[in-house]
Amino acid sequence: MSKTPLLEIEDLCARVADKEIVKDFSLTINEGEVHAIMGPNGAGKSTLSYVLCGKPGYEVTSGSVRFKGKDLLSMSVEERAREGLFLIMQYPVEIQGVPVTTFLKHAVNAVRKHQNLPELDTMEFIKTVREEGKKLGITPDMLKRPINVGFSGGEKKRLETLQLAILKPSLAILDEADSGLDIDALKVVAEGINAERNEHNALLVITHYQRLLNYIEPDYVHIYADGHIVKSGDKNLAIELEKNGYAAFVKEQ
């Protein structure tokens, strides 16, 4: 297994509206790895993903984050995305009047332009999107609809997964902190994500329940509380957690 670091977080502190949420958080993710961050509700797990993506309103107060060796924190939201950081959001926002394909085409071409690649041919692009969509149970009709508008929770997640498959990021963050997804949808999404895994990309899964990890098997599991990792281990830690609850670990510190 290669040990090229993809994401290196060192002593990261961040706040939202004057409230410290992330405190001295450190984590390194190498190429080819799957990490899971688990933590009780309200621990600020989603905050971590927003901080990494640069969402306005989330302020980094100290620490550093390197992504593929570059300073991530100095990049704009879209630069981070173009570099290959992708966030599968808990609640993807609706945008009236913008069809899925139109949106995706803009995104793909923005990323390709960043990589000095030519724009995709429209027909070729539509073909690819349809094929990928089919695997995820997304019909051509759904692709014509405005993005996320009127889609069910499960459908929205499928659309997020479709974007992952098309944009092929180096690091995907799956923010599934506490949103409910039915088992069938969960399976489809997990399969979609697994299909995209290879030795050069990595995955960070943020979740409250262990059940997701039955479908996406992690190499490392971290327990997150009070703004940082309180314990790390392999997938067995997640199983232990499911049995004993968070309280045991949170107390340990």
């Binding site: 969402k55 879209e78 995305a81 993807p92 926002v93 945008i95 995104a107 923005a110 960043h114 974007q163």
Partner: peptide
């Protein structure tokens, strides 16, 4: 909405 678009690489 802006964040969502930018997260997918749009300026």
């Amino acid at each position: 909405q802006l964040f969502y678009c930018q997260q997918r690489g749009l300026d």
